[in-house]
Design a binder for these strands. Structure first.
Lengths: 190, 190
DNA sequence: GATGATAAATGAACGCGTTCATTTATATTA
DNA sequence: TAATATAAATGAACGCGTTCATTTATCATC
């Protein structure tokens, strides 16, 4: 019962992800989601309160999955070493996500902002976990920096300004991520 | 032709305002607006690009009108004297608006934020005009303070936090306005 | 297995914002 | 005034998110 409900929810998310990857966020609508998942429209609302919740869950879902995998792969050694491996991992596996984020940022600032906040939450979790195990960096410094609302704005601003220069989207995204992962408190607050 | 088009647009705004006053922002919808204005649905889109533009125009419209009137009534003398008269004017005439703002802030934060930004723009204009004519306060200090994004957030935060205490809405709104009008730069930045 | 209770699934229907081919009004020219 | 061109008005139709009375499946008790 528990797993079945979770399973259906996940199936809907997978469906939504498939649509998003091929046609962007705007391609997602409840009716299509229901049809492609082989259920009725109303049933979707047994698993999600609203369309917005579907979109939020979609982002949460992606990042938690991707970051869990990353956690497995980069674990071990000092944080500074792990960070390098994180970048490599991101560079290798997050191409699709970068594209999705880029598109949503371009099309709908509010949506993009929400997504970045979600990303921030996920990144924050994994980074704090790392930093707690690393004596070379004071955990509270990172923690404080990552809880700042300004962080999401900062990321967004960076990405948007870089986007305007029409560089390669995915490449730019990864560069920004790299900057974020290496940032120290001073840079964040400025 | 010019005045006729302007007239129709204004008539639609008046209509929207009437609805808003009696039933809140959510009472406004294009179909009803068209019906009550005695025109077809599609015609509304000859005067506004979207519903959102109607709502924005509604706020702009109110503040520019009200503040123009205020400008006439409070002109003359030093700024500090004028400020007192502004408050009186606001207290006497802006009851409806306070109610509208309060409701929209309560119901939809994003909408409320947009409205506050609009209000800020209007207030900023009239305040700067005043301050330029008053040698007792350096205009650039006020100007700088009022252009800060933080200002809208500040106002919103204040109003929301005061709202939560369930005081009289209109009264609270006016108190907040009073605080805003008397604020100095230091307070805004903190 | 039969019976009742509870949870899940259903899809027609609603209200909404928006569009667009068509009609009507207004302006311009002959 | 008649003929034409341009602007404005129209409202049925579309796609969407969401709801809810009804049906179907699942579980618990005997």
């Amino acid at each position: 019962m528990r797993t079945k409900k979770e399973g259906r929810r996940q199936a809907l998310l997978d469906c939504a992800r498939r649509i998003e990857c091929s046609e962007g966020v705007d391609g997602i609508n409840i009716r299509r989601l229901a049809t492609e998942a082989g259920i009725a429209v109303g049933t979707v609302y047994n698993y999600f309160e609203s369309k917005q919740e579907v979109l939020f869950a979609l982002t949460e879902d992606f990042w938690s999955g991707a970051l869990e995998e990353m956690q497995d792969r980069v674990s071990g050694g000092r944080f500074s070493d792990q960070a390098g491996r994180m970048i490599s991992f991101l560079r290798a596996t997050m191409h699709d996500c970068a594209e999705i984020l880029m598109r949503s940022l371009h099309e709908d600032a509010a949506e993009g902002r929400a997504r970045m906040t979600s990303m921030q939450r996920a990144l924050k979790g994994i980074l704090i976990k790392r930093l707690e195990q690393d004596e070379t960096i004071r955990p509270d410094v990172w923690s404080e920096a990552f809880t700042r609302e300004a962080f999401a704005e900062f990321v967004l601003a960076n990405m948007l300004s870089l986007l305007r220069q029409k560089d390669d989207d995915a490449g730019v995204f990864l560069e920004v991520l790299q900057r974020i992962l290496y940032l120290d408190k001073r840079e964040l607050i400025d």
